[in-house]
Write a protein that binds this DNA or RNA. Structure first.
Lengths: 345, 345
DNA sequence: CTTAGCACTTGTGATGTTTGAGTGCTAAAA
DNA sequence: TTTTAGCACTCAAACATCACAAGTGCTAAG
């Protein structure tokens, strides 16, 4: 249990350290704090906080820095989101104000805005399409030998892929295949479709095409892409600013991490309605030891919930970041509701 | 003019330095060289080479490293491409051996292979589509309010984009627009189309749609994308290995460089049939000072010429790299000819 | 419980010192 | 004329030394 004063001191330690990056000592604190007690008193309190594992020294006679647990305590009990700077709000509203023709543009743009505001790396995910169903499949012939496969889900997602067919395949055959797929698969969820694709579909298709493998590849491909959640990433390069001692290897693993959708999903974890903060040492992934992750959902009513996140150094100004994330999720939700409203009616 | 012996020495300096990264001194050279002369003799020759600006010292009593001009002389007169390692050839053939359904897949895969072989960053560009012409345009309705715009060129490139329309637009109207575009614009080169798009098309479209702007945006967008050469980049992360003293800023500008198609095109320069090497100091871009660029075209007969390139530190083993690039361009050309042959007939 | 005071610790940065690899030059040998 | 041995000189890099500033814990008095 912490006393009022200890909380005040812990808060000051975190604040000062996240601002300056320098371990903070008793004298500095004595000057900064609203109460006036001597540095010796502070030292005693610091010793107590260290006892509880909330702060630590970088060497035996250094000032204190927050430990992982210290950050945890801070974000759980002490931090208060900063109100957004007026300028930041302008940035958000003007960047989101334009005319968009696709949800994905809005979501991708959001990642950029967030990374600009924070100068960290940002992730965005569009409203969930977990249980979306296949609502249509097309094969559009484009020329002598090119065909585009288009897949549409009931949540409005579209995946497509062009491929070349050799000319032994006729338009009739393609049409038969399309009809087959639309008859048998439309209405199923994407995982179900994938499963059927392994099972009975190949045989049925073999009735129309002599070598269905190529086609099944394509269809499977488009399907997996559609079934996969796609994260947009903004401000990739900002990671470079925080690779302390420029450890190339950890940078590389960081980058391969954020380029794999599955890994990101893993790291971001399950969405919760609260804004959540993960401190570096709490994350399983070693490359993230010195980073923290702030994630939040945004709620677009009947259109589901999406997710935004920022990844920055553990030593980040949490109050400001929480303010930004909090405000942004609201604005994004508003924008999307607007967007849907326009097209719904 | 260089004597035989000076050439031999210059070659040895470049080779040794590119291998070890350490400035090379007279004694080392005396041991390494096939002729046996004393280190003092070598010193005299080194002084002569330095006189001509081909090598330089890092400080007044250091060994020598090649200057920009030295590298230039080396690649122009002294280097001989290494034959490919058998293992490398296996890698190429197996990576290129698979079944591809699109040219773009082959070209993109090529960038990856090249970067793996060299452990540098690689660029690939598909056979040129400079003068390709618009050969078709479609609007495919996908659902209540989604439409996909598809544009096809006579060189087989396809660009597409999905967008939402509000429901006041009818299928008939869309069809009219498509007909208009196909009537007026098919057969023109893409730049011509772009130009017409600025001029008389908007008025004509206004006959069918009350607010054509959104649509023109989309069409323009797809069109510019199609008109633009697209470079594939492989091994981005390898750049991290060579950011000496981990200069974050130059790394950032490097990355923003390779993510802008226009900039890459600029840097790679005009294709020539010979394999060409650009040494860091010869390139206008400051971020590339410590890099060299090897570019080569590959020739797919009537299907035009494409380009491959690798970007690595100026201090790279040129003979090996030239060998790899030389072999790869051949293999890639073969693969593409195969690919076209299959679909041509 | 708070505080002044003091001895103690440690990173940092400035200043030498040593070492080793390298150079240019000179004068003799080939 | 070219090559070579020899020598004095230079410089980066590694290491040691030192002073100092910022910090600590502890003790004893307020």
């Amino acid at each position: 249990m912490l006393s009022e004063r200890q909380m005040m001191i812990l808060r000051a330690v975190v604040r000062d350290f996240t601002n300056t990056g320098v371990p903070v000592g008793s004298k500095t604190l004595a000057k900064q704090l609203p109460i006036h007690v001597s540095s010796a008193t502070i030292r005693n309190e610091l010793a107590a906080l260290e006892e509880q594992g909330l702060i630590e020294k970088t060497h035996s006679s250094s000032g204190r820095i927050p430990s992982g647990e210290g950050y945890r305590y801070y974000v759980d009990h002490l931090v208060k989101p900063d109100p957004l700077r007026p300028n930041d709000m302008d940035v958000i509203q003007s960047s989101l104000g334009g005319d968009f023709h696709k949800i994905d543009e809005i979501i991708s743009q959001s990642a950029t805005i967030l990374s600009n505001l924070t100068s960290y790396t940002a992730f965005t995910l569009k409203p969930e399409l977990k249980n979306s169903r296949l609502s249509g499949f097309r094969l559009v012939p484009l020329g002598k030998r090119q065909v585009m496969a288009i897949l549409v889900t009931d949540s409005g997602d579209v995946e497509n892929q062009t491929f070349d067919v050799n000319e032994t395949v006729t338009g009739d055959q393609l049409e038969a295949v399309v009809r087959l797929i639309n008859d048998q698969l439309v209405g199923l969820t994407l995982p179900e479709v994938l499963q059927k694709l392994q099972a009975d579909i190949p045989m049925k298709i073999a009735n129309y095409l002599q070598s269905p493998e190529g086609f099944l590849d394509i269809f499977g491909d488009v399907l997996t892409r559609a079934a996969q959640e796609r994260f947009y990433v903004g401000g990739r390069l900002n990671l470079l600013n925080f690779s302390q001692d420029s450890d190339v290897d950890s940078l590389k693993s960081l980058y391969s991490l954020i380029d794999k959708t599955d890994d990101i999903a893993n790291v971001l974890g399950q969405p919760s309605d609260k804004i959540s903060v993960q401190i570096g040492n709490e994350m399983t992934n070693d490359a993230l030891r010195n980073f923290s992750l702030i994630t939040a959902t945004y709620d677009v009513n009947q259109h589901g919930k999406g997710m935004i996140a920022i990844l920055g150094p553990t030593r980040m100004p949490y109050s400001r970041m929480l303010g930004i994330v909090g405000a942004f999720r609201e604005e994004l939700a508003k924008k999307l509701l607007d967007y849907y409203r326009f097209y719904d009616e």
